[in-house]
């Protein structure tokens, strides 16, 4: 059982959280976005082994936030609210 840190509620069990995707995956708008670019947004991932930066949602409070952690050792480095992280798509 990992412990994640919700920027709003504090440290909670991993089972309260849901993975929301890699952070910084900017959505291209428009019907004329090139197919490759759209596929890149929709499907392609960095999926790094080691340091990751991801969007998570704390299901209990419903807030999305950005978490930095290690995908091998599972150390959690930081949690930042979406506003603070400047993440937008």
């Amino acid at each position: 059982m990992q412990l994640f840190h919700c920027p709003f509620c504090g440290t909670r069990d991993e089972t309260e959280f849901h993975f929301g995707g890699e952070a910084g995956n900017i959505r291209p708008d428009g019907a004329d976005v090139p197919a490759d670019r759209w596929a890149n947004y929709l499907y392609m991932r960095d999926n790094p082994k080691g340091a990751v930066r991801e969007v998570w949602v704390h299901m209990n409070c419903g807030e999305f936030f950005v978490m930095e952690r290690d995908s091998v050792g599972h150390e959690v480095v930081s949690s930042t609210s979406l506003d603070g992280a400047g993440h937008a798509r």
Binding site: H18, G20, R27, V55, V57, M59, G62, E63, F64, L82, D83, H87, A88, R89
Partner: peptide, 14 residues
């Protein structure tokens, strides 16, 4: 509900 929240927070703002 989760989708609405995600778009709200991530695209539109609180």
């Amino acid at each position: 509900h989760a989708r609405l929240e995600e778009w709200r927070q991530d695209r539109f703002g609180r």
